[in-house]
Computed example of a mutant assay.
Amino acid sequence: MFAIGATHLLNDTLQAVIPAMFPVLEQERGLTFTQLGFIFFALNMVASVLQPVVGYISDRKPMPNALPIGMTCSLIGIAGLAIAPSYWLILLSVIILGFGSAIFHPEGSRVSFLAAGSKRGLSQSIYQVGGNTGQALAPLISAFVLVPLGQIGAAFFVLVAALGIFILSKISAWYKRQLELEKQNNRKKVILSSIGELTKKQIGTALTLLLVVIFARSFYVTNVTSFYVFYLMDEYELKIAEGQLYIFLFMALGAAGTFFGGPIADRIGRKNVIVLSLLVPLPLCLLLPHVPLWSIGVLLVVIGFFIMLSFSVTVTYAQELVPSKIGTMAGLTVGLAFGMGAIGAVAFGKLMDTIGIFPTMVIASFLPFIGLVGLALPKDQKMAMPEKK
Rank of each mutant, 00 (worst) to 15 (best):
Y87F: 15
V346A: 15
P292V: 08
Q15M: 12
K188V: 12
R110K: 15
E28P: 02
K350D: 09
V362H: 10
E182Q: 14
V190H: 12
I96T: 10
A206T: 09
I90F: 02
G134L: 08
T225D: 06
N185Q: 13
E180R: 15
T13C: 07
Q27W: 08
P19N: 13
G30K: 10
F33P: 08
F99S: 09
R217W: 03
L91V: 14
A143G: 13
G108P: 01
L332S: 07
L299G: 11
T199Q: 06
A173D: 11
V315M: 14
L377G: 12
G108M: 02
G243S: 06
R267K: 15
S58E: 11
Q151G: 11
W294L: 12
L377Q: 08
E235S: 15
I296R: 01
F259P: 05
I95S: 07
S112I: 07
F99Q: 02
D234V: 03
S101P: 03
L207N: 10
S86K: 05
V273Y: 07
E237D: 11
A255H: 02
A256R: 03
Q319I: 12
D266R: 00
L276W: 11
N186I: 00
K183N: 12
S123F: 04
F358Y: 11
F260D: 01
K350T: 15
P85Q: 09
I247A: 06
P378G: 09
G37Q: 05
G134Y: 04
L372I: 04
A265Y: 08
T333I: 15
L10F: 14
R187S: 11
V190T: 14
F215Q: 00
Y175F: 15
Q151M: 13
L351Y: 10
L279W: 00
A216C: 05
S172F: 10
R270I: 01
V280T: 07
V54Q: 05
G121P: 05
N44S: 15
L332R: 05
Y56Q: 09
L299E: 02
L25C: 11
K188A: 04
T199P: 02
A173F: 06
K239E: 14
S58Y: 08
L300I: 13
S118G: 03
I195K: 01
A3T: 07
A115G: 05
S86P: 05
N223Q: 14
W294V: 10
A6H: 04
V147D: 06
G134P: 06
Y220K: 00
G344P: 06
V213W: 01
A138V: 04
F166C: 07
A345T: 09
A347Y: 11
L168D: 13
A82H: 04
I296K: 01
V291F: 09
R187H: 08
K170D: 08
F311K: 00
G117R: 07
I203K: 15
N223V: 00
A161R: 02
L89N: 04
G327Y: 04
G371L: 01
E197Y: 06
A206R: 08
A66Y: 09
P23N: 04
M308E: 13
P323F: 07
F41Q: 03
S312L: 00
T328R: 06
S172E: 10
A206I: 07
D234Y: 11
